[in-house]
Amino acid sequence: MTLAAPPVPAPGVVAARRPGRSRALWLLLALAALLGLAVLSVAVGSRPVGWSDITAALGGSSETLAEAAVTKRIPRTLLAIAVGAALGLAGAVMQGVTRNPLADPGILGVNMGASLAVITGIAWFGLTAASSFVWAAILGASLAAVFVYAVGSLGRGGATPLKLALAGTATSAAFASFITAVVLPRNDIAGGVRSWQVGGVGGASFDTITLVLPFLVVGLLVCLASARGLNSLALGDDVAAGLGERVALTRGLAAVGAVLLCGAATAVAGPIGFVGLVVPHLCRMLVGVDHRWLLPFSAVAGAALLTAADVLGRVVARPSEIDVGIITALVGAPFFIHVVRRQKVRAL
C-alpha cells in the first residue's frame, strides 16, 4: 500500500472545514513572519551592528566594517529566501507526486546527486563558471531523482515510504563515497569541496542569485501550475485517471518543476536537507491538503524557515557561524522521526 500523505478528504470537505478566509489569513501571517525574519536577518549576525549602520548600508554605503557586514547580509538574506522557498515548494510537490509523506530532496538523495555532478564537473570536465555549476547541479539532481524513484518503486507496493527512504539514503551514501573518491587526488580543488558537502548561504552574492533566478522562476511556475493535478493524484493513480487526469504527464511535469527547484537551490547553497520535509507537513496542518493553497504556502513558509535557521546559525555560535544545512538537519531530523512515529506501520 502506498500511503497518501495524510488522509485526503474530497475537496469539497476541505473547503467546508477550512474556509478560504482563514487560509488567506494564515498566508498573510506567514508573509508577515517572513518579512520580519528578513529584517532580522539583515540586522542580526555574528557581528553586532547598530541601526545607523544598517540604514547606511541599505543606502549603499559600506565604509565601516559594520556597514560592510550588513551589505553582505542583504544578498545572503535574499538567497536564503529564494532557496528556502524553492526547497519548501519542491518538498510539497515531491510529497504530492510520490504520495509519500517522507519525500524530501535531502532524504531522496537529490541534493547529493547535484553535489556529485558539480564536483565531477569541476574535477574532470574543468568547469569553472558558476553558471555551468547550475546546469551540472540540475542534471545531477534530475538523474538522482529519477534513479532513486525508479529503484524505490520497483516491486510490490510501488514506492512505499520505506523503500524510497532506503533507496535515497543508500544512494546518498554511495554518492558521498564517489565525491570523496573524485576529490581525494585533487588537492587543488579539495578546499572548495566542503561547501558541496555542507549546505550554507554564507557565500551569497547578487551574481549567484541572478544566476539561478531564471531556473527558480521556471520551476516555481511549473510547480504552481501543477497544483490542481496534484489534488487529483492524491486520490490514487486509478482514481485520478478516472477523473480525466493524464497521470503520467501531470506527474512528470510536477517532478520536473521540483527537480529544477532542488537542483538550482543546491547549485548555489549546497545540500540542505529536511526543509522540504518539515515545511509541507506544518503547512498541511494549517491550510489543509488542497495543493492550490498548500504549494504557495509551503514556498513562503520554507523561505521563512530557512531565513530563521540562517539567523540562528549566525547567533548561537558567535563569533563564528553554523552552516544552515547543519541547523536544518538538527531541527528537521527530529521532525522526520515524529512523522515516522505517527504513521501506522502498515503504511510504511
Binding site: 535531502g106 515510504p161 520505506l162 527512504a165 558537502q197 527530529p334 515516522v340 512515529r341 504513521q343
Partner: peptide, 18 residues
C-alpha cells in the same frame, strides 16, 4: 519504523560530524 527512525537519526549525526 526502526529503520526509518534510524535514517533520521543518522542524518542528524552526520550533520554533527560535518
Amino acid at each position: 519504523r526502526l529503520i526509518l527512525i534510524g535514517i533520521g537519526i543518522a542524518a542528524m549525526l552526520e550533520s554533527v560530524i560535518a
